[in-house]
Write a protein that binds this DNA or RNA. Structure first.
Lengths: 137, 137
DNA sequence: ACAAAGTTGACCAGATAGGTCATAATTCGC
DNA sequence: GCGAATTATGACCTATCTGGTCAACTTTGT
């Protein structure tokens, strides 16, 4: 039960996009990679995944790059996590239809985690970072 | 971010122990394995891990087996999960000291998950199972 | 035309997970 | 004491996942 590196990287990229998109110019993946210490070649796959989920838009060609797909306050961490890692705490660990008593518990737990992550927007995380610049180096 | 099979099996075994320990006789791992559909050879490793964490006691030799280490109402799912899978949502995915803004979010999430699991005792799950026998076949 | 940048799929090495096997140590019942 | 039952332990195996790189292609601004 842990956050994958992919997921961590995806969230970093999203937050950084939120911070950099004042001028509305798209941001190159290489810039995101450098600023948030993400392996560059790896990041492009992640961005593609985010794009397919509609969480970012891309602009091809020179001066191209990525933008957030929607306003940062309208994108939740839950969406990012789910776009990268799939359903939170689901599909179930041992899918043999046994021990439904426990299954019910996991379901409740999953819902609770989702509820938490749904309340945190990319905007909020970006604001924390902006408030104390040292915070996200 | 998912519950491992190990963890699922561990929880099943604990719940089944809670259900079977009326007469105070230890329950053999083979019995637990059969009743909760857990690979028998695999379960012994898991039980050992639970024993090292103090969550079960063992009795060696013929007629031996396992008992809960404490009263089922005093053992939380959090303890079981942590004994098997280690800290919930920690150590952190990419431990490079970067993006502390996100790190703070993960920490809050981890605490929230732990809080949820800490409120569910083995006893509670066992009671659900006992209430509707079909529930845990 | 050229360079910058996204798109895509193949590839790869190491870690992890799930699970088995063999062997030893312990203890009950006869 | 013997044999069967049962836990304890570590080696081992295999398939999948994960993190990451590479190369080739497409698109587009200057």
């Amino acid at each position: 039960m842990n956050i994958s590196a992919r997921c961590e990287y995806a969230c970093r990229a999203m937050v950084e996009l939120a911070l950099m998109q004042q001028n509305h110019d798209p941001v190159a993946s290489s810039v995101l990679a450098e600023r948030r210490h993400i392996p560059e070649k790896y990041l492009v796959h992640i961005l593609l995944q985010l794009k397919r989920a509609g969480l970012v838009q891309s602009v091809r060609g020179a001066q191209g790059g990525y933008r957030l797909g929607r306003l940062p306050e309208d994108i939740t961490l839950l969406e990012v996590v789910q776009a990268i890692d799939g359903p939170v705490l689901d599909p179930l660990p041992v899918n043999d239809g046994q021990s439904l008593d426990l299954r019910a518990v996991w379901k409740e737990t999953a819902d609770s985690i989702a509820g938490e992550l749904r309340q945190i927007s990319i905007r909020e995380v970006a604001d924390r970072a902006a408030a104390s610049p040292m915070y996200y180096i």
